[in-house]
């Protein structure tokens, strides 16, 4: 058997128009983690498994290069990681005794940059992305059109990431493409 192709929902599609660049990231390993993030058990697991700490404000994310940890809820985090997601998940279950699931394929990630980014996003999201309100290092689960998204702010230039479920990826991408002409 040949090496199987690792697909993403948009086959690495891109938008490159005046004021907006959008690119689908390649396959990214992701693990959904549950637990009491104020507990030492969780903190120890984060440290040993990922080299990270569990102190994370709501609607924020932190990265150490190899892994990025997103706040999803009071007892829920999402990790993007270079490590093997199945291994992380099973070790988490062993060490913490709570839930951990490999969700690498559940969603894809679009990276948006350029001066039009904010106008494009608020065309579909009822969420204020003004730099005073949504700063670098912050993330938010909201909606874009009818798609639930995880939005994160990565640089002041600006650079945003939009994580969207696999089955909604084409919808979100076409939505972005259409409004890019209008803003």
């Amino acid at each position: 058997m040949d090496n199987p192709v690792i697909a993403t929902p948009l086959n690495a599609a891109k938008i490159d128009t005046d004021g907006l660049t959008v690119a689908e990231l390649g396959h990214t390993s992701k693990v959904n983690l549950r637990g009491d993030f104020s507990s030492s058990t969780v903190n120890n697991a984060l440290t040993t498994l990922l080299g990270m700490e569990s102190t994370l404000a709501p609607n924020a994310f932190v990265s150490n290069g190899a892994s990025t940890l997103f706040w999803l809820g009071p007892n829920e985090r999402l990790i993007y990681t270079d490590s093997d997601p199945e291994t992380i998940a099973s070790q988490w279950r062993d060490q913490v005794g709570t839930g951990a699931v490999d969700v690498s394929d559940y969603s894809t990630v679009l990276r948006l940059s350029g001066p039009k980014v904010r106008d494009v996003i608020v065309s579909g999201a009822p969420f204020d992305v003004h730099p005073d309100e949504f700063k670098v290092g912050q993330c938010a689960q909201t909606r874009f059109g009818n798609a639930s998204i995880l939005l994160s702010n990565h640089a002041e230039t600006p650079v945003f990431q939009m994580q969207v479920r696999w089955s909604f990826a084409e919808y979100a991408f076409e939505y972005i493409k259409r409004v890019a002409n209008y803003v």
Partner: peptide, 11 residues
């Protein structure tokens, strides 16, 4: 109570 002020259409 967890995420702060948000638009009704998220709820």
């Amino acid at each position: 109570p967890y995420c702060g002020d948000r638009d009704q259409t998220e709820f």
